[in-house]
């Protein structure tokens, strides 16, 4: 469940901009963003917390080099993305199940939003690392392909291709398993 405080901070960067820029305000404003990036990517709360803590520790080390809150946010997203991908590669943090092996829901008919959301998160977590991070940044952070390309240091065309292919795969899998998805 998304935290109200984090949602508020997410909606209005200006709310935090009004406060003096301190490490603590940045930590409070962006902890949900960093944790969620890691959680949606790794699908493991402990691992996600560990990554998020590491990212903020790194932020503290580089605090004096960073300027505006936008700069801090960009830096956090980039470092969090890289750390998640590194961790996945290092520990072979492969998705718990391959995309094609995600089980069909046991109850036929209209699934609740909770189940549907759970299913979609499982499908995303079964994607390969780079496309998975692209999807998390696009649908969690609502970033445009150009922004994602800058953040991950890859061509915009690659980002768009990852998005199209991943969406098509997810859609197909979701339609097959849930039937109701438009």
């Amino acid at each position: 469940m998304a935290g109200a405080s984090q949602e508020a901070a997410r909606e209005s960067g200006s709310a935090t901009d009004a406060e003096p820029r301190t490490f603590l305000t940045a930590l409070r404003a962006h902890q949900a963003m960093v944790f969620s990036l890691a959680y949606h990517f790794l699908r493991d709360r402990n691992a996600a917390e560990e990554v998020a803590q590491d990212v903020f520790l790194e932020l503290h080390r580089h605090w004096d080099e960073l300027g505006s809150d936008d700069h801090v946010k960009f830096w956090l997203r980039r470092v969090a993305s890289n750390r998640c991908i590194d961790r996945a590669r290092r520990r072979k943090y492969q998705p718990i199940v391959a995309l094609d092996d995600v089980p069909e829901p046991s109850t036929p008919g209209e699934p609740s939003d909770f189940l549907l959301n759970q299913k979609l998160r499982d499908l995303v977590s079964a994607l390969p690392e780079k496309p998975r991070m692209v999807m998390v940044l696009r649908y969690q952070e609502e970033m445009m392909p150009e922004q994602i390309a800058t953040l991950l240091g890859m061509p915009v065309s690659t980002v768009k291709s990852h998005l199209q292919r991943s969406l098509a795969m997810l859609r197909e899998k979701a339609v097959r398993s849930l039937g109701e998805v438009r």
């Binding site: 935290g3 997410r10 490490f23 998160r121």
Partner: peptide, 30 residues
């Protein structure tokens, strides 16, 4: 609709309790 549903599924999640305290403790230790 599918993308909107995806966006809802991927909405932000709060970190576990005491996350802030744990980060600050690590910063202080360092």
């Amino acid at each position: 609709d599918f993308e909107r549903q995806l966006m809802q599924a991927m909405s932000r999640t709060d970190p576990p309790g005491a996350f802030e305290a744990k980060v600050l403790a690590r910063v202080a230790r360092e």
